[in-house]
Simulated assay, not measured.
Amino acid sequence: MTATRTRRTRGTGHELRGLVLERATDLLAELGDVDALTMRAVATASGVTPPSLYRHFSDKETLVQAVIAARFEEFTSVLRTAATNAADQPMARLEATARTYVHWGLRQPGHYRVLFSAANAGPAGLGLSPETEHPGAESYRTVIEAVAACLPVPRHDATLILATELWASLHGIVDLRITKPDMSWPAWDQLVDAALGAVRTAATNSSP
């Protein structure tokens, strides 16, 4: 990424905010650490002056919160849309959610790295209070709900384990391809199908 950009012409506040979030996402994906990100670098990448940037984001913490929130909102929306558009069967909706998770991560590796690999992007790094939910909670809840819908008699503990196990598998499929792209990994759709095996088994074996 080049260090300087042409100063952009003035646009609407909404347009500038969107541009800044995109450029901050790109920088954070490249740096891999919230602590390494600077407001000056984001301003330069966005083609605006630091004072213009501060008019929209009072400090770096506020900016990073907005970046993480925007990217997770995008991710969650994609997952929910995939489930909604799938066949009207719980397992079909879960399969669509799982495949979309991996497909989105592979198509948006920078965004994915920001959400799941950037250092200091947890609750403490984002400056979230203990009672404030992390922006990623909704996407996790989406997978939990999709798994629960597949079980005839869902139990919270069993559902949480199955959903977390599935999430970890999907994350691994994406992360391995992003970090080690030269390896000869099995086809990702086959791995997704295997990752869904535990839920299919639980759905079949569960009884009232």
Rank of each mutant, 00 (worst) to 15 (best):
A3T: 03
R8N: 14
T12F: 10
H14I: 15
V20E: 09
L21I: 12
A24F: 09
T25H: 02
T25D: 00
L27P: 00
V34S: 04
D35A: 13
D35W: 00
A36K: 07
A36I: 01
L37E: 00
M39L: 11
V42S: 04
G47H: 05
G47F: 12
V48Q: 07
V48Y: 06
T49A: 08
S52V: 13
R55F: 15
H56R: 10
F57L: 02
F57C: 00
S58W: 03
S58K: 10
T62K: 11
V64G: 00
A66N: 03
A66W: 02
I68V: 10
A69W: 10
R71H: 07
R71N: 12
F75W: 15
T81G: 06
A82P: 04
A83S: 05
A83V: 05
D88I: 07
D88P: 01
Q89H: 09
P90V: 13
M91F: 14
M91K: 08
M91I: 13
R93H: 09
L94N: 08
E95A: 04
A96S: 14
A96D: 08
T97Y: 06
A98S: 12
A98I: 13
R99W: 04
T100F: 00
T100N: 13
G105R: 06
L106H: 01
Q108W: 03
Q108A: 14
G110I: 08
R113V: 10
L115K: 04
N120R: 10
G122M: 03
P123Y: 05
P123E: 09
L126Q: 09
G127T: 07
P130S: 07
P130I: 14
E131Y: 06
E131A: 07
E133H: 08
H134L: 12
P135A: 02
A137I: 02
E138G: 08
S139Q: 05
V143N: 04
L151N: 11
L151R: 06
P152G: 12
V153K: 09
H156W: 10
D157R: 05
T164I: 02
E165I: 07
A168H: 10
S169P: 00
L170Q: 01
L170C: 05
G172D: 03
V174N: 09
R177V: 13
R177K: 12
I178F: 15
P181S: 13
P181D: 07
M183R: 11
S184D: 09
A187D: 15
L191T: 11
V192L: 11
L196I: 11
A198H: 14
V199K: 02
V199D: 05
A202R: 13
A202W: 14
A203D: 09
A203N: 04
